[in-house]
Amino acid sequence: MLKRSLLLFLLVPALALSLTACGGKDEDAEADEDATPAAKSAAAAPAGGTAPAAAPATGGATLTGKVTFTGGSPAKETIKMDADAFCKSAHSAPVYTEEAVVNANGTLDWVLVYVKDVQGKFPAPTTAVTLDQRGCQYHPHVFGLQAGQDLKIINSDGTLHNIHALPKVNAEFNIGQPFPKMETIKKFDKPEVPVRFKCDVHKWMGAYAGVFTHPFFATTSDQGTFEIKNLPPGTYTVEAWHEKYGTQTSSVTVSGTETKTVDFGFKG
């Protein structure tokens, strides 16, 4: 009897394993359905230090400005990528955290600047915003997009990532991209600042998004500057958000096609 029981004990898990292995193929197929054709990448906004151009075609005022930083520059923190041999080999030079990046000219990088309380309807652009996982880091680190706009998430690495979005207003999601060049399209339906992204596989990976009902937002460049175009006439509150140093606000009135300057200053 014991032999028969042992045989049964061995056979049942073997059958279960073979069934789950079959299920794995189906899951891969689902992942492929979720992925978008590579052709879409051509339409994607470029990943970089500034937000994708999402403004209306013509007209309106322009807001420009820079975000300065005073106080002691935060020490650069080197990221240790020992947890994954691919990540470690992807960089020949030290890689630093992007939580607080002070540019050489004393300005602050990765600040999301946006106009608040904008009236009117602004359809979401048909072009996608791209969040690229490259060198086991998110590119860009901070970005904006409109509610309903496609967010194209790409894995450019030769290792796997999970993309875990942690919004509080929108729906949380956690997806896996186990293969290089995988692409997944996601959307956020409601405005929300910030939406945090993290990779639970590689703890150092983090990014932030701002979701807006309008296209009047920008991220500071590596010169600490920003530009928001085509703003309709009116008086607005402009806010600058930084993941470590919080928010600053300023009020501005614009008319016609004039250009106004709005500067912000953060203290360390």
Partner: peptide
């Protein structure tokens, strides 16, 4: 999607 993923991170 697999029984044994890479054991990284």
């Amino acid at each position: 999607g697999r029984l044994m993923p890479p054991m990284v991170g």
